[in-house]
Write a protein that binds this DNA or RNA. Structure first.
Length: 487
RNA sequence: GGUCGGAUGGCCGAGAGGUUAGGCAGAGCUCUGCAAAAGCUCGUACAGCGGUUCAAAUCCGCUUCCGACCUCCA
């Protein structure tokens, strides 16, 4: 039927995708920690997995897509006091932690919706799965791969690594990771090994988010929530686990370790990791001042932005790069994408109007196969889009009467474009809410222009066209009549 | 400092031993009252230096530049 290949971080090569229990597919993607707005770089990761989700469904799989929301909060990386990010935000803004989470959760969903991402099948929260995380921690303790010190439970990495390839995902050398850093442990006497990480953390008196546990009041470690929730909803072994590349060395490595320590197997068959969005060659991040929020991107309200860009333009821009490559953001690059998307969508609109002939001078089957070959090659959207542009040329050429198409081929071509452009790539027509009014006005204006043209009053005709152009509306004259497009 | 990854035409970005990537921009032509749109044609790119090979942007070394992760105790 298909021969979808997926690049697996575990083996560092592309592998044929074989679900454990076809036609069902289980996919888990590490979602956001909700202590601030998601920026554009975060969005790229979720967009990449939206394509995976859509394409797998398109191939006929029944996908259960689980994407968590971490609302317990990781510790501040840049603060030594070990304060939780969400708790800190709550304290600063004098709000309940859950108010903070709710604020950003609503924003997060709204943003992803603007980018036309499909909602996941299940979106579990870490705070809603505390018992599961406690149970898992207990099991790991029972299995002898964790130890408790003063209300905190640590995972014993070195002991675990004796029987399991702890660094297989990150492809690092364990000895080198351990080497030369033991001296740094001074003052950190709770933990035995430098790579050990917390499964459960004792809450300091001022810590707001806390739960009861067999080890006293505390909160779960970062990592364990993904293990607990993926197991609960997808089982001890599922098909795909994904996330951003920056999660590989710590979060995912430790997730695999916990899971294996508990269930004696790797949680997922295929590990997929998306690359970073860069600005001027550097990873988008807040500290560098080069990050911006989707809302700013849409409105153009940011020093790095020459103007605003619509969500579909941004989506298309991102799909023109492969998910495992870095993608560099720039105004010229996104403006190029904007023009390209316009050309693609014009062809899509033209397609149903094409005249058919007795014979075809174009090869629709070859185009179809090329598009699917690209998608099957590790979700290669840039190549699929490149093939689609060959189809665009085909459509325009037929429209110009330079090529021909049979009725059967036309249906095939329509099916291909509709399925790939809308269902798989998730692009959609962007129409303003007052589209009907605008349409009416435009019809009227163009009707008037037709009249003055009939009278050879080209000065008036040109004035209409030029003034419309200033409003970003492009008039297209052709033998068949007049059409227009808003840029 | 350690580990890993990357350097492709004016810009973005695929590919990965021999065959046009694609988009945007630019030039010419066709169409057109003019313009736009659309079509056709064009640029002949793979950081540098060596090596392997009949053949290298693609493989191997070295060099230069860039990035990510880690050097943390989520």
């Amino acid at each position: 039927m298909h021969d979808l290949k997926i690049y697996n971080t575990l083996t560092r090569q592309k592998e044929v995708f074989k679900p454990i229990n076809a036609p069902h597919v289980g996919m888990y993607v590490c979602g956001p920690t909700l202590y601030s707005h998601a920026h554009l770089g975060n969005c790229r990761t979720f967009l990449s997995f939206d394509i995976v989700f859509r394409y797998l469904q398109h191939l006929g799989y029944k996908v259960r897509y689980v994407r968590n929301i971490t609302d317990v909060g990781h510790l501040e990386s840049d603060a030594d006091d070990g304060e939780d990010k969400i708790a800190k935000r709550a304290r600063l803004e004098k709000l309940e932690p859950m108010e903070i989470v709710q604020l950003y959760a609503v924003d997060f969903h709204q943003v992803l919706d603007q980018f036309n991402l499909l909602p996941p099948s299940i979106e579990p929260t870490a705070s809603g799965h505390i018992p599961e995380q406690i149970e898992m921690t207990k099991q790991i303790l029972e299995n002898g791969l964790a130890y408790e010190v003063d209300g905190t439970v640590w995972f014993d990495v070195e002991k675990f690594a004796k029987t399991y390839p702890y660094t297989q995902l990150s492809n690092r050398n364990l000895d080198e990771l351990l080497d030369g850093t033991r001296d740094n442990l001074e003052g950190q006497n709770e933990k035995r090994g430098r790579l050990d990480f917390a499964l459960w953390k004792k809450a300091s008196p001022e810590h707001i988010m806390r739960w009861n546990s067999p080890w006293g009041e505390g909160f779960p470690g970062w990592h364990i929530e993904c293990s607990a929730m993926s197991t609960k909803y997808l089982g001890e072994e599922f098909d795909i686990h994904g996330g951003g590349m920056d999660l590989i060395p710590t979060h995912h490595t430790n997730e695999v370790a916990q899971h294996a320590a508990c269930h004696h197997k790797n949680p997922a068959r295929y590990w997929m990791h998306t690359n970073m969005l860069t600005v001027n060659g550097q990873k988008m991040s807040k500290s560098l001042g080069n990050s911006f929020l989707p809302a700013q991107l849409f409105s153009g309200q940011h020093p790095l932005l020459e103007r605003g860009y619509s969500p579909m333009v941004v989506r298309f821009f991102m799909l023109q790069a492969h998910y495992r490559s870095t993608l560099d953001f720039s105004n010229t690059a996104i403006q190029a994408a904007e023009k390209g998307l316009q050309r693609l969508m014009s062809a899509v609109k033209l397609l149903p109007l094409l005249k058919t002939s007795e014979t075809s001078s174009v090869n629709v089957v070859a185009l179809h196969d090329a598009v699917y070959a690209a998608m099957n090659d590790d979700f290669n959207t840039p190549v699929a889009i490149a093939e689609l542009f060959d189809g665009v040329r085909m459509i325009n050429s037929i429209n110009d009467g330079k090529d021909t198409l049979t009725a059967t081929d036309k249906e095939q071509l329509k099916k291909l474009f509709n399925e790939i452009v809308f269902d798989v790539l998730g692009l959609k027509e962007e129409t303003g809410e007052s589209a009907e009014v605008v349409d009416g006005l435009m019809n009227l204006i163009l009707e008037l222009r037709k009249d003055v043209r009939a009278k050879k009053d080209f000065a008036a005709s040109d004035k209409i066209r030029d003034e419309l152009a200033k409003l970003g509306i492009q008039v297209k004259d052709s033998k068949e009549g007049v059409s227009w497009i808003k840029s």
